[in-house]
Design a binder for these strands. Structure first.
Length: 497
RNA sequence: GGUCCAGUAACUCAGAGGUAGAGUAUCUGCCUUUUAAGCAGAGAGUCGAUGGUUCGAUCCCAUCCUGGAUCACCA
């Protein structure tokens, strides 16, 4: 640290020297006639017309040789070399140039030309400091070998990259791509839904009761009302209230919070898309989900497939639709469709699947599915016929009241969406939530709570409705070929240092 | 939470039971077409933390901290 402090102290001294020259190292106003990208794009024009240009950027390389110096500056659009001569900028300005450090922001006026080595550069007539950097930025150097960029001393410590994301973005500009793609995915989702007549809404994140998923919440406290509040674990119950209120197509894209374990698929706050469509069922939602993801990938990559670590995933319709029981049977030979608790339990014991005391047959079926089937589902697959027991907000299936009209979408072995034909029978819904409540009393900390206000809304009548939830971070991981959620969240949760 | 791996200079890394090294960055000097500029010199580290073993620990052992991988748990 001592050394680091010395490096900082040297920069502070330079800052003082700049001030002593009567120069403001943090000026308010900036002149910029061209972006660097523009200079590069119209290279021939600027070489020919020898017009004066003014560019801004951050210094990220410096090669001084006595009375001349070369530097590279970068703005968001590109990088260009500066050529600074003492006899061109004058002695005073050259003194300022000598006080610059890597990481400083500068404004440079000059004209474009080619150096003897053929490098397109700006020959400076004036160099102005826009912001003095006080902390040395880790050095990353690049060399082009056969058109390929070779990097030296890359800023690659994963922990540092997440904790100091600004340095990661600065030093590994390639990592900006994940976040640019993220923005484009979200834009594409919005335009898709907007075009289909969905209304984007915002519902409370602070809730006095949480629900819509099985998860443990974060708690907080409101001082004026002197009540505990929860951060939402899903958006479901409020969007359904809006369907009761007469909106027929609504969606919300927003942060949701679950107080659970963290790993490469889980961050405590994550982005969820939920949508509800009146007069639709889960078959309609399957169609919609297919169309939406196809639209997104088409918008972002102009492609109808995704390549994830050499696995090619085709998005061509129709996607496979298959019952969870069929998949289990295919993988294990075990037929669980009778929902016979004793038989299923025996199978789980045989396969060493842990059985929680509150688990019923449905829960065990889900466990069997996760253990034997999930990772095999590479191509997009709608898994249907989830047991009603583990689907307390979904309508049951005509002809088999123990199953729910619910699907989960699996791609590349991970779950991307969860959807139901929504339960709109208020009496049935009350019974389901009360069952959940009993499970909670038996020790299932993630069981749903009874939300009287939601039940009351249902009693006023919710039309038949199809609903969908999509984990957006995971969708972006899939599209950007990342295996850690931390790579697609700008500031992932970390333990305090 | 279990298991495994990692933590050494600002960055990327080497090292070894005897008190710490390289490249880059930084500083000084030389240098008016360089581009991982060059040449010469210099400074810079509580070797993640705390205990233990030892004449001596950064190295061996234990515990802890942080991160990663994986398993478990989890919508």
């Amino acid at each position: 640290m001592e050394n680091f402090n010395q490096l900082v102290a040297i920069r502070r001294q330079k800052l003082q020297k700049i001030k002593n020259l009567g120069i403001n190292p943090y000026p308010n106003r900036v002149k910029r006639t061209h972006t660097i990208g523009n200079l590069i794009e119209h290279k021939d024009k600027y070489l020919k017309n020898q017009k004066k240009v003014t560019v801004n950027g951050r210094l990220n390389a410096m090669r001084r040789q006595g009375k001349i110096g070369f530097a590279n500056i970068t703005d968001e659009t590109g990088r260009i070399q500066l050529y600074v001569r003492q006899d061109e900028v004058g002695n005073e300005n050259y003194e300022v140039f000598k006080l610059l450090d890597l990481g400083d922001f500068v404004q440079v006026e000059g004209e474009c030309f080619l150096t003897q080595r053929g490098e397109y550069s700006v020959k400076a007539t004036n160099v102005l400091i826009l912001c003095k950097n006080l902390r040395p930025i880790p050095t990353v150097k690049e060399k082009e070998v056969d058109g390929e960029k070779k990097r030296y001393d890359e800023f690659s410590d994963i922990e540092l990259r997440y904790r100091k994301r600004y340095l990661d973005l600065l030093l590994n500009p390639g990592n900006k791509r994940n976040f640019e793609l993220r923005a484009r995915v979200i834009t594409a989702i919005r335009s898709f839904l907007d075009n289909r007549g969905f209304l984007e809404v915002e519902t409370p994140i602070l809730q006095s009761l949480y629900g819509g998923a099985n998860a443990r919440p974060f708690m907080t406290h409101h001082n004026t009302l002197d009540i505990d509040l929860y951060l939402r674990i899903s958006i479901e119950l409020y969007l359904k209230r809006l369907i009761v209120g007469g909106f027929e197509r609504v969606y919300e894209l927003g942060k949701t919070f679950r107080n659970e374990g963290m790993d490469r698929n889980h961050n405590p706050e994550f982005t969820l898309l939920e949508l509800y469509q009146a007069y639709a069922d889960y078959y309609d939602i399957m169609d919609l989900t297919e169309d939406m993801i196809i639209h997104v990938v088409k918008e972002v990559f102009n492609s109808d497939k995704i390549v994830f670590q050499e696995k090619e995933i085709s998005l061509k319709k129709p996607w496979k639709r298959v019952s969870i029981f069929e998949l289990i049977k295919e993988e294990t030979g075990f037929d669980a469709s009778g929902l016979n608790f004793e038989r299923i339990k025996a199978f789980c014991e045989e396969k060493d699947i842990e059985i929680e005391p509150t688990a019923g047959p449905g829960k065990l079926i889900e466990e069997i599915f996760k253990t034997f089937v999930e990772s095999k589902l590479i191509q997009p697959t709608f898994v249907t016929d989830f047991p009603k027991e583990i689907s307390p907000l979904a309508k049951s299936k005509p002809g088999n009241s123990e199953l729910a009209e619910r699907f989960e979408l699996f791609i590349n072995g991970d779950e991307y969406a969860n959807a139901f034909t929504e339960l709109n029978d208020p009496i049935d819904q009350r019974e389901r939530l009360e069952t959940q409540s009993r499970l909670r009393e038996l020790g299932d900390v993630e069981a749903n709570v009874v939300d009287e206000d939601f039940l009351e809304a249902l009693e006023y009548g919710m039309p038949p409705t199809g609903g969908l939830g999509v984990g957006i971070d995971r969708l972006i991981m899939l599209i950007t070929e990342n295996t850690s959620i931390k790579e697609v969240i700008l500031f992932p949760q970390m333990k305090p240092e």
